[in-house]
Structure formats: C-alpha cells, structure tokens
C-alpha cells in the first residue's frame, strides 16, 4: 500500500538525516583536535553523500547515505611553537572544520528531518482518517 510505503520512505529520510547530524556533531566536536606529534595530521572534516536507493522489497525509492568521505581542503596553520604538534618552524596544522559551514549543515539536517517527520505525521493522519470512515 502506498501510504505504508510513504511511512517507510520518510523513516529512511529521517535515518539519513540523523546520520548526517551525527557527522556534523563529530566535525564540531573535533574542531580543535590536532595531531599529537610534530607534523602529524589533525582531524580531517568528514562529509556525507546521499543517494537514491531502490528498495525492491518495499517497491519504493528511499534515500541512504552512500559514503562518509573526507574533505580534501588544506589545513589552516597557526603559529604556536609550544604545541606538541608544532613543526620545525613553529606552526601547528589545525582541522579543516569551519564551524559556520557545520552550523549551516546542522540547520539543513534539522529542516530536512522535520520535513520528513511532517510527511510521516501526515501519512499517519491520512491512514487514521481513512480507517475512521469505516466506523
């Protein structure tokens, strides 16, 4: 039944956005995670990639996170000779996490989650109202 499928598709969307929010949380939490030894790499920002997935058992197209990749952008440098990860010139490589970008990503994940939740609630309401017609 299509309404039942809509429920499952919305749930898949919510799952995908929850994973995205988890990645945003990881990025924000590791915003200051530098390496421990001189020249070691700091935390590299992670990105999520969504893709359509044909669920044959369900007979509908759902969404899933296909890959949690890494951001190849360069690490910013900070002059801090006392840091354990400082190189020979006294520079520390910092994670390439931009908190503004992460905040925007978080907002998007939240809005998308809410939209999927709205579809779920509407579907449930439609099902309930249809069953009410029997009474």
């Amino acid at each position: 039944m299509d309404l039942d499928r809509a429920l499952a598709v919305s749930a898949a969307g919510m799952r995908a956005q929850a994973l995205r929010l988890r990645v945003v949380a990881e990025n924000l939490a590791n915003r200051d995670s530098t390496g421990q030894t001189p020249g070691a790499d700091p935390y590299r920002r992670r990105t999520v990639t969504f893709a359509e997935r044909l669920d044959r058992a369900l007979g509908a197209r759902t969404v899933q996170v296909v890959r949690v990749g890494t951001d190849p952008r360069d690490f910013p440098l900070r002059f801090d000779p006392g840091h354990p990860a400082a190189d020979a010139r006294g520079y520390v490589r910092l994670p390439n996490v931009d908190s503004l970008v992460e905040m925007m990503d978080m907002q998007e994940a939240q809005r998308s989650y809410s939209a999927n939740l709205g579809v779920l609630e509407t579907t449930r309401g439609m099902l309930a109202r249809t069953i009410e017609a029997l009474r």
Partner: peptide, 26 residues
C-alpha cells in the same frame, strides 16, 4: 535500535490494530 524504527513500527501496529478493530465493529 533507533527511535525512528520505533516510530515506524508503532505507527504500523497502530494502523493494523485500528483496521482490525474497525472491521470487527462493522
């Protein structure tokens, strides 16, 4: 499990039960 799974499963159960009850009443 995840909360999403619970919401989905409980919604399905609710719909199934409502259908069965409505049919029985009828």
């Amino acid at each position: 499990g995840s909360v999403t799974e619970v919401v989905l499963a409980v919604s399905r159960a609710e719909v199934a039960l409502q259908t069965a009850v409505a049919l029985r009443d009828r």
